[in-house]
């Protein structure tokens, strides 16, 4: 076995996993606050990445202006989706709400293809190109810097939820909606904020992932990997999303490198199947109590 190769692949996988963790975090924020499983998260990422393409490529803005604008656009999209398509579904069965997000995903794919066409595109490169070495191991700079930016946002998020007013409101709403409401928390606003924040995390990750691997209307399929991440970690667990994100990112990359690209999805979904059978609510998720 070539340990150097394994190390390099693993490193790339872990860096990718860091971005998965960020997306997973976005997903969990939305789920925790609103109990909505967002099948459109991959498409929101894609939308933000296309915005970046439009700003940095088409309009020739500096990437460091285009990046925040694109992320802002993706977050706004999340907020708008919540407001016009998720809110009317309040109180409907979770199945119906999930299907609404599936519908939204389909709309976004169509819109993106309508505007930017069906062909794969490359994002203008904006990350430093100097190769990164960790010990002897080489890591592609796009991946390394992408990871660093993603990790930075992740840390900001964790601090925000721990200490800020908004974070407290969000956590209170997540743990007991009725109580949060009676304490004067504007639950509707929290729902909306959760979608904005969740989409923000996803949007940043979307641009970073697209910067390494390219972009096409099929990009949203990454949402499937994210789904695996959050199920394995536990839908309502932030720690779970972080750990599972890193692990799934690593596994996917290693499986792809050693077995071939066609094994990436089956490998992670095999983990998912095992989890569903042995730990149905994920590694860290809470089991919902049922009553009659």
């Amino acid at each position: 076995m070539d340990w150097l190769f394994f190390g390099e692949i693993s490193l790339a996988g872990l860096a990718m996993g860091g971005l998965y963790a960020l997306i997973g975090l976005g997903f969990v924020i939305i789920y925790k606050a609103t109990r909505v499983i967002n099948f459109a998260i991959g498409e929101i990422m894609m939308f933000a990445a296309y915005l970046f393409l439009a700003f940095a490529g088409g309009m020739e803005m500096s990437p460091w202006v285009a990046l925040p604008l694109a992320v802002l656009g993706g977050s706004l999209l999340g907020g708008v989706i919540e407001k016009i398509m998720i809110r009317p579904m309040l109180g409907e069965s979770s199945i119906s709400v999930v299907m609404v997000t599936i519908g939204i995903a389909s709309i976004l794919v169509g819109v993106v293809e309508m505007i930017w066409g069906a062909d794969p595109q490359l994002l203008p490169s904006f990350l430093p190109r100097k190769p990164v070495f960790i010990g002897e191991m080489y890591l592609a700079p796009k991946i390394a810097y992408g990871f660093l930016i993603g990790a930075a946002l992740l840390i900001v998020y964790l601090l925000y939820f721990r200490f800020s007013r908004g974070g407290v409101a969000l956590r209170a709403t997540a743990s007991d909606q009725a109580a949060a409401y009676s304490m004067g928390i504007n639950v509707r606003r929290v729902f909306n904020l959760a979608w904005v924040f969740g989409s923000l995390a996803a949007s940043l990750a979307g641009v970073l992932v697209a910067a390494t691997g390219g972009l096409s209307p099929q990009f949203g399929a990454i949402g499937l990997s994210v789904l695996v991440v959050v199920i394995v970690g536990g839908l309502d667990s932030i720690v779970g999303a972080l750990i599972a994100g890193v692990f799934i990112g690593w596994l996917e990359t290693v499986a792809g490198a050693y077995l071939g690209g066609e094994y990436r999805m089956p490998a992670t979904f095999a983990v998912l199947a095992v989890i569903l059978v042995f730990r149905p609510y994920g590694l860290f998720g809470t089991h919902e109590i049922e009553r009659v």
């Binding site: 398509m85 009317p88 579904m89 409907e92 119906s96 299907m99 609404v100 599936i102 519908g103 939204i104 995903a105 389909s106 709309i107 976004l108 794919v109 169509g110 819109v111 993106v112 293809e113 309508m114 066409g117 069906a118 209307p217």
Partner: peptide, 24 residues
């Protein structure tokens, strides 16, 4: 013709969302 396939995606999505919200 170029717009047909994306249009279809949009219509499918809009039908799902629209029916769930307005005519469940």
């Amino acid at each position: 013709p170029i717009f047909m396939s994306p249009m279809l995606e949009i219509i499918f999505g809009a039908l799902i969302v629209g029916f769930l919200i307005f005519e469940p």
